[in-house]
Write a protein that binds this DNA or RNA. Structure first.
Lengths: 135, 135
DNA sequence: CTAGCTGCAAAATCTTTGCAAATGC
DNA sequence: GCATTTGCAAAGATTTTGCAGCTAG
């Protein structure tokens, strides 16, 4: 169903992809919906969700399922890590390289076939650090 | 609000904690609700959610926000990794030690104050491996 | 042409919350 | 006694889906 071999480039899909690649803010579906509506005022949120799934299945973007209640999307489909601010929930790319030693750890786990791992750093962003501690 | 200094040990909270510690299946709130109802048939799902938050804030259990749509809970509050089966969504404890080299990586990230990280392994569990590939 | 896509709206899923009554300490 | 907790039910937040009409290739 999501193996999407023939897949059509509709204006909606094109704009969604363009807008997502324009930013590095890792927007949620709803945030992207707002961005895309500037160019396509009649688009529906359902279309945004459907296209994000399809683009993810096609490896053109990635879906980030980080430790917050909603999913975020990243126009950069390359493997890289993210840091999430525990106060404001902002997500930025981490500048560390993908760590090869982790792969060695993976080998130690025997009874599962390990496909990969998901690593997310948690921290406090510069902006939030300057604020008086929440409240 | 969730700093829970005075906190009361109600029968509901006690049973929730006991049932969660009894298993290593990392149940969701709803799964735990079913388990707990065997002993407390009148308990409400809201109470289960509220207690899971409080127990998490108290460090007695941990909330797992892994890459699936719902949150799971772990009666073992110690730091450890998890492996999630990408087919059946089962979550098991990973037998690798918590990797200290990751802490070195953390240091390289400058502009955030890094608090920690969340690492989850993704794989296919033995049971699912034996099945014909999903469908 | 026609399989795939869209907008719309309703539904599904998971979680939180307001409230009045109950209760642990 | 009284702050905390409970059950209930309604609301909230996010995501998915059925459907009839539309459209890219």
């Amino acid at each position: 169903m999501l193996d999407q071999l023939n897949f059509r480039m509709t204006p909606q899909r094109k704009v969604i992809l363009e807008e997502l690649r324009k930013v590095n803010t890792h927007p949620s579906a709803d945030e992207l919906y707002v961005m895309v509506r500037r160019r396509l005022p009649r688009i529906s949120l359902g279309t945004v969700y459907r296209n994000l799934e399809i683009l993810t299945a096609n490896g053109q973007i990635q879906k980030l399922e980080l430790g917050s209640s909603l999913k975020r999307f990243d126009g950069n489909a390359e493997n890289h890590y993210h840091i999430r601010c525990i106060r404001c929930d902002r997500v930025v790319d981490a500048s560390v390289d993908f760590d090869p030693t982790l792969d060695r750890e993976l080998k130690k786990m025997s009874d599962f076939d390990i496909i990969g791992y998901r690593l997310e750093f948690i921290g406090i962003c510069p902006a939030c650090r300057k604020q008086p501690p929440s409240g």
